[in-house]
Amino acid sequence: MTYRVRIENADGEVVTIEISADELREKGLTLEELLPPNARIVEVEEVEP
């Protein structure tokens, strides 16, 4: 499974990243732990691999 994640950074700019569930598991991280300081998740969407 892959996630498309929209993130708002500290400057108010919204960027989109895609990350797979396998990648998260391998790194032992959650989506929140990948965020840079002062950023927030705006939207998470599951996409087909």
Rank of each mutant, 00 (worst) to 15 (best):
1 M>S: 08
1 M>H: 12
1 M>K: 15
1 M>W: 07
2 T>W: 13
3 Y>Q: 08
4 R>K: 09
4 R>N: 04
4 R>H: 09
5 V>H: 00
5 V>N: 00
5 V>G: 00
5 V>T: 00
6 R>A: 07
6 R>V: 14
7 I>F: 15
7 I>R: 00
7 I>N: 00
8 E>V: 15
8 E>F: 08
9 N>K: 15
9 N>T: 15
9 N>S: 10
9 N>C: 15
9 N>Q: 12
10 A>P: 10
10 A>E: 13
10 A>R: 06
10 A>V: 10
10 A>C: 12
11 D>W: 12
11 D>S: 09
11 D>K: 10
12 G>M: 02
12 G>E: 01
12 G>S: 02
12 G>T: 01
12 G>C: 04
12 G>H: 04
13 E>M: 12
14 V>T: 09
16 T>P: 01
16 T>L: 10
16 T>H: 04
16 T>R: 02
16 T>N: 04
16 T>M: 11
16 T>E: 08
17 I>S: 00
17 I>L: 10
17 I>Y: 07
19 I>A: 01
19 I>S: 00
19 I>L: 03
19 I>H: 01
21 A>T: 06
21 A>D: 06
21 A>N: 05
22 D>R: 11
22 D>A: 14
23 E>G: 03
23 E>S: 07
25 R>E: 07
25 R>S: 07
25 R>P: 01
25 R>F: 11
25 R>Y: 09
26 E>P: 02
26 E>N: 10
27 K>E: 03
27 K>R: 13
28 G>L: 04
28 G>P: 01
28 G>S: 05
28 G>F: 04
29 L>N: 04
30 T>N: 06
30 T>E: 04
31 L>Q: 00
32 E>Y: 10
32 E>I: 12
33 E>P: 00
33 E>H: 07
33 E>M: 13
33 E>W: 05
33 E>L: 06
33 E>K: 07
34 L>T: 04
34 L>C: 08
34 L>D: 01
34 L>N: 02
34 L>Q: 02
34 L>W: 15
34 L>S: 06
35 L>N: 01
35 L>F: 06
35 L>T: 03
35 L>S: 01
36 P>G: 13
36 P>Q: 04
36 P>N: 03
36 P>T: 04
37 P>F: 06
37 P>Y: 04
38 N>H: 11
38 N>C: 10
38 N>V: 02
39 A>Y: 13
39 A>S: 14
40 R>P: 01
40 R>T: 06
41 I>K: 03
41 I>R: 03
41 I>F: 05
43 E>G: 13
44 V>Q: 02
44 V>F: 07
44 V>I: 14
44 V>K: 02
45 E>K: 10
45 E>V: 13
45 E>G: 04
46 E>I: 15
46 E>Y: 14
47 V>W: 11
47 V>Y: 13
47 V>L: 12
47 V>C: 07
47 V>H: 06
47 V>S: 05
48 E>Q: 14
49 P>V: 14
